[in-house]
Design a protein around this nucleic acid. Sequence first.
DNA 1: TGACTATTAGAGTAGATACTCTAATAATGA
DNA 2: TCATTATTAGAGTATCTACTCTAATAGTCA
Lengths: 224, 224
Amino acid sequence: MKTRDRILQTSLQLFNEQGERNVTTNHIAAELGISPGNLYYHFRNKTDIIYSLFIQYRALVDRYLRVPRDRTLTIEDQMFYLESVFDGLWYYRFFHRDLEYLLTTDERLRMDYREFTFQCLTEVRAVLQGLEDAGILHPHSDQEQEAMALNVWLVVTNWMAFLKTARADGGNDATSQQELKQGIYQVLTLQLPYLTDSYYDQMAAIRERYRPQLSRVQPEAEGS
Amino acid sequence: MKTRDRILQTSLQLFNEQGERNVTTNHIAAELGISPGNLYYHFRNKTDIIYSLFIQYRALVDRYLRVPRDRTLTIEDQMFYLESVFDGLWYYRFFHRDLEYLLTTDERLRMDYREFTFQCLTEVRAVLQGLEDAGILHPHSDQEQEAMALNVWLVVTNWMAFLKTARADGGNDATSQQELKQGIYQVLTLQLPYLTDSYYDQMAAIRERYRPQLSRVQPEAEGS
DNA sequence: TGACTATTAGAGTAGATACTCTAATAATGA
DNA sequence: TCATTATTAGAGTATCTACTCTAATAGTCA
């Protein structure tokens, strides 16, 4: 593997494990067993590494989040999107952690991420539309659909942050990838009241499979 | 005003303006025109300052987020809670920005914030229950209510982060406090499908008042 | 082979950053 | 008044961090 790719790979791993803020360029070089000079030969600076990782992430999402406009969708279609989205979020999980700071230090990233966000929102709306056209969801008004899509986005992109704050430990282990999928439960909760009678039971059953094991997260039922 | 309080006040201001990560203890001292030694006489370290600000924030929330259990709620009750919550989020807006990092560096903060989260979730559920009992919302199942409360929490606590990422500029100016309130629109969107017929129009009208001026945020309607 | 380019090592640096230490000054209270 | 405590100044420091510079080495291709 090319040095450049190894740098990206190791950076991603260290960022994910320790958070971007705690990982310096020297750490990355040391972990790889290369010199700082070598690292800076391949990347102008740390920001450049992060930007390249974002490009990878975007490419990943672009690869699977292609919602067809020429046919209606099935429940399975949506489940595939949801599973894929959460897998991507997990794989590049450092990214949404320090997102705000990253965006303030890199104008280019800010613009590209902004565009990426709106593209994703468009795809989310296409999913909702596809489910409406299939008679799975009751139709939304245009504005309601837009607001709904935004809520889906908020829940999806911030579920992991919530998990981290809600767990007693900082919870960065492999268990968490499974827990992350419980975000799907939350997304499906958003759709619950819009389900048509013919599909309610099916969707509710699927949703059940993702129900959070809140015992892990929540304190023992304490009479608040 | 006592030096200790001035330190907290100035720290909050600088954190809000520049982000916790970009504000050093030396900056705070310089801004106040006091010596670093003086600052460290009042606070053991930066973490200690942040923790004290969290205590302030929590006290603020505790003061207004007291949902009565002995009577049903009105729509106005909920609007008061929502307005107050977003005001609080704005006033201590640095906090949710770097939340994840802050929680990893301060065990005490992590535990207290976790407890705070669950208390807030309990109050959100009490609001939903109060609206159900008042016949404003169709009743949720217990689990649905729980998941719904969690979604409300996710939308409320992350709306600001979304705004910052979605605006072309980093948007930290006073305009943003008004935009922040548009999060209320998103929260009310969550409730929309649960509204009973008798209250739908009233709530929908109120919600309209908070509709995002997305022109500010979104790119000119571009054919995706 | 030899000239040229691509890659790498590694020592080094300017600037931060969080925090300490000592001594001076103010406030307080007997 | 004077002893004691609370507060403050400000110089200083160990450590870190992102990044640079030079020289060596490896690869390529005519």
